[in-house]
Write a protein that binds this DNA or RNA. Structure first.
Lengths: 220, 220
DNA sequence: CTAGAGTCTAGAACAACGTTCTAGAGCCGG
DNA sequence: CCGGCTCTAGAACGTTGTTCTAGACTCTAG
């Protein structure tokens, strides 16, 4: 009814092939990586697993389930320092850079973040982030606001960047640039600053992150 | 091939019903508002317009076109102060609050921002934002980084909030909360701060925005 | 050893979808 | 009157998510 995370998973068979669900999720991620979100079909997913298409519905109730699981799966790639360093800012930066990198590695995630992010991997990363901010001396309501602000910034940055890169055809990116440049009188600032030009996106992201971290009402 | 914005629109007939395309977009937004992104079907959209389903393909090449147009449409609702005030910060805040409000008014937009945002309404708002930041004394590369940071923050915040509210069933939100609360040992900080609790989302957003604006390397 | 209750697989089938093809109606200038 | 343009829409195709159903396999209970 409401999402994978709130429903108990199928109890595995006595000696049935374990990790079946894990295999489904892994294959889904692989398929999404190669074909994009439109290329993920229950039939093709089953085919890749050497199974009948309708068999999937034993392990998973929905296609939405598959998408939810695949999305949370890639956040598991974000390494979580086992023992946080003394510097909260380094910890937060490391986490958020990894978060962004994971989303850019799987650009289809940009199209899926519109669904509730309450999977275990997302929650664990959020927990880590919030605990780092607490070590910075933040207290409510700033603690929650800062956590949300940082997470939302990362998500927004990853979404806009990978959606822009979804114009895979580099010549269509060029067309978009010319389209913009042709309207200098309408968008003088954007044209002047080369708004759609390729730039050092990593640097741009780091700068924005620095602004946000600088603005937090931390201890010192 | 690449998106609505880079293709010339159909030249209108000599005296044919004008604004046909506008009517399509308006009906699409209305349908999306009522039924969500899964409820928008070319057939139902046509039905609502009193037309045959396949007629739409004369005015629009794709369903993707409709979605791109509908998405840009709602950004047109964000009022742009004709003559910006003297205070850049007020201008930026007003714009970004309106931006967020528009997305929350049309929650389906959260699922669609994964596509390139290069429609005229988005570009005009971005131009306004960037010109305000320039008046704050920002220069490259900070000017671009700040523009992106603010836009990405708004998008991320709207995406996560409306995707959370997409769990329309309030009792399933409650279930998610209990699911979290039951794992206090795993997510101690999140549980303590009531991470999934309803709070004053507007205040949280404003706080985050203030952090970011405070952190910008402006003139003064 | 047999019966039966799980666990798991998968074929058949359905309604709905996006989209193409095609034929044609209505209108216009020449 | 003709030929070309704008615009409409029916028929049809392939594909999709999903349900229903029947059956195979495995283990436990009696």
């Amino acid at each position: 009814m409401t999402g994978v995370w709130l429903r108990p998973p199928r109890s595995p068979g006595r000696s049935g092939p374990p990790l079946r669900r894990d295999r489904i999720v892994a294959a889904a991620v692989e398929l999404l990586d190669r074909e994009g979100v439109a290329g993920l079909t229950m039939r093709r997913l089953a085919e890749r697993l050497g199974a009948g298409s309708t068999t999937l519905y034993w392990h998973v109730t929905n296609k939405d389930d598959v998408l939810d699981l695949a999305l949370d799966q890639i956040f598991g790639e974000v390494v979580l320092p086992a023992s946080p360093s003394g510097d909260w800012r380094t910890d937060a930066e490391t986490l958020l850079l990894g978060w962004r990198a994971a989303m850019l590695r799987h650009p289809w995630s940009a199209a899926l973040v519109g669904r509730p992010l309450i999977g275990p991997n997302v929650l664990a990363r959020t927990e880590f982030l919030q605990s780092a901010l607490r070590r910075a001396g933040l207290v409510e309501p700033d603690l929650t606001a800062a956590t949300h602000a940082l997470a939302n910034y990362v998500i927004g940055a990853a979404v806009t960047l990978s959606s822009w890169q979804r114009l895979d055809d580099p010549e269509s990116r060029q067309a978009a640039r010319q389209h913009l440049a042709a309207q200098r009188e309408r968008y003088p600032t954007l044209v002047e600053t080369g708004h759609l030009d390729d730039r050092d996106e990593d640097d741009t992201f780091r700068r924005g992150l620095a602004y946000l971290l600088d603005g937090l009402p931390t201890d010192r």
